[in-house]
Amino acid sequence: MKKTTSIISILVVLTALASCTVTGAPLPDYNNIFINVANDAGATYDAFGNDTYNIRFEGIDRGLNALHISTDPAANYGQVTLTEALSGTFYATDSGGKGYEDEILLMVAVNGTIPDDFSLRITSDGYTWPPNPVSNTAPPFDTVSYQPVALDETFTKADFIYGPQTWKPTGNEVEYPIYFGQDLGATGNTFRLMFVDLNAGVLRPNASLENQGAVRITYEFRNLESFAAFNVYAYCKTSNNGDDMVAWSNALLLPKTVSGYSVVRVPVPFPGKTDPPTDPDGDGIIEDMNGNGYSDFNDVVLFFKQMEWVQANEPVSRFDFNGNGIIDFNDIVRLFKEL
């Protein structure tokens, strides 16, 4: 009892000292912005002469119907996938009326602090073609060429030049989630972003084409300590929406058809425990330290006792309540205040 009282006293003192500071360069706006890609070769379509793409959605909820993420190219409306696999494959698919997008960009978002030894290898394969000068018209099949290796490149922490932030760009005038089910009210649960040019476009599903005309995307993480979310964006050279625009992305809010792909690093049981820690409220941060399915004062005590062990053995960003990249007393205070 005396030991527990001492812990409470420490928590009360530390509450007054709690603070959180973040630095970085979030995207400047939700829409009509120029973004750089992380590829060494730069943008495949450098329409503006500044090695960028222009994200320019037409308006609220526009451009969120045609493009999807799927684990099966035949299921072109896609689905939401959450996996523990640090390597895997998914597809960018199309269900839109015009039947194509000239180029697919991959947005990668990593939660919390990215380790210095982090890396992500991305490979892609799919079709390329000279953009059709006729607006909103798919390329003739005799101009389409399959690229078995459209991209094979490894990216590091330094490539995540955008963030910290909690939203992805769309035509909506308010924040739009990075992954399905995200609590946008959890403003401290931030992500770093990068955009990758996949060097291939997507075509309307066709059984005679490789992967039905989808862009296949394969990933391999090393030293991912937290949570990563993938989104896709599409560029079109000429369309009824305008020229040289990135104006399409996968939807993440109902009632639209939602799709996405996320990877979560799984925490391990604390010393002396058999069940792994859990995230009862689904905000990406672990509150249930002892793995019994809910958060209570026992979790605060366990967290306090095992601070150094958590820093050395767990995915730190899953336990980093204040987002400063380390496990400290401020994190224990914040868990205590959530009870």
Rank of each mutant, 00 (worst) to 15 (best):
M1Y: 08
S6G: 10
I7W: 04
I8E: 07
S9A: 13
V12L: 14
V13A: 15
S19T: 14
C20W: 01
V22A: 09
P28A: 13
N31Q: 12
G42N: 04
D46L: 14
D46Y: 12
I55K: 00
I60Y: 13
R62Q: 14
A66G: 09
A66V: 02
S70T: 09
P73G: 11
T81W: 00
T83M: 07
L86H: 10
T93N: 08
G96K: 06
K98I: 15
G99L: 11
E101G: 07
V110H: 14
G112Y: 05
T113P: 04
P115W: 08
P133I: 06
P133K: 10
N136P: 01
N136F: 08
T137V: 14
A138V: 12
P139C: 06
V144D: 01
Q147K: 10
D152V: 03
F155A: 06
T156C: 02
T166G: 06
P169I: 08
T170C: 08
G171P: 05
D183H: 10
L184Q: 09
T187K: 06
G188N: 15
R192K: 15
L193I: 05
V202E: 07
A214D: 07
T218R: 13
F230W: 02
F230K: 03
D244Y: 13
M245K: 13
A251L: 02
K256L: 15
S259N: 11
F270D: 01
F270C: 11
K273F: 14
P276H: 02
T278E: 06
E287G: 13
D288T: 05
D296Y: 12
V301F: 11
F303Y: 15
F303C: 03
Q306F: 01
Q306A: 02
V310L: 10
F319Q: 00
N330D: 12
L335G: 00
